[in-house]
Design a protein around this nucleic acid. Structure first.
Length: 156
DNA sequence: GCCAACGTTGGC
DNA sequence: GCCAACGTTGGC
């Protein structure tokens, strides 16, 4: 079982949106980066867990935990000309982009802010903390996972 | 709104 | 296959 960090803009789709979906489950569409697609398609498995990270907002940071609920399947938003993530190079026969279903596990009592994360030495290798990181999904080690969960239980 | 970082595109 | 130009992400 793997751990991940998944970024989303809360104005577009935040953890509170997910909380209101039926079964608190939604498909994670719109990934249009090959590295991220490959991780989704080849490495993500049902039962994996991920941090839900809010980006491009007032308080960027980790807001909760979600769980992967499906294997990867073709991202149908790429096939819809009306969709802002439409990709004419994708097709039903040769889907270029993939997605998974995710379900909310828990929303944290507070957001663990980017600044706070940056201050923790043992998290320094997390891609999300590096400037210029462009991947909307990145792997998290089990050590990083534990370290971050402790921050929720023991706020500073 | 600025700008660093990096992915993508397209001419050659 | 190179690489300049351009586009996007995302923190600040």
């Amino acid at each position: 079982m793997n751990y991940w960090l998944m970024k989303s803009e809360p104005e577009v789709f935040g953890i509170d949106h997910l909380a209101k979906r039926p079964k608190q489950t939604e498909h994670w569409d719109g990934v249009r980066n090959y590295q991220v697609r490959n991780m989704i398609r080849d490495q993500m498995k049902p039962g994996d867990q991920a941090f839900f990270y809010h980006s491009s907002c007032k308080e960027p940071g980790i807001t909760g935990v979600i769980q992967i609920k499906s294997d990867a399947y073709p991202d149908f938003s790429a096939l819809d000309p009306e969709n802002e993530h439409f990709d004419p190079k994708s097709s039903v026969d040769k889907p270029r982009w993939y997605m998974v279903d995710v379900q909310l596990v828990r929303k944290f009592s507070r957001t663990i802010g980017l600044t706070e994360l940056k201050n923790i030495v043992s998290l320094a290798n997390m891609p999300v903390l590096r400037r210029g990181n462009r991947l909307s999904i990145t792997p998290v080690t089990s050590l990083e996972w534990k370290t971050i969960l402790k921050l929720v239980d023991h706020p500073r």
